[in-house]
Amino acid sequence: MNALNAVLASTGRRAGQARRWFSGVMGADKYQRYREFHAAHGQPGEAPMTEREFWRDWQDYQEKNPQGRCC
């Protein structure tokens, strides 16, 4: 039973890692990473953008800075 639990736990951990990796590749974790960045290096007293504001800002940025996609 213990062995089974251990296997399940390790599979779960791996699945979690894979999901986090994939979400990073897709750029889905951008807001979370922005918050981390802000917490470490934001101007003191300046509130971070809300999730909605952040994604608006990101979309505006993308609008002006198109990223190529290769063939």
Binding site: R19, S23, M26, G27, A28, K30, E51, W55
Partner: peptide
Amino acid sequence: YLRYIRPGKVM
């Protein structure tokens, strides 16, 4: 959906 309903829920 990403713009108005649930911003940021990319996955």
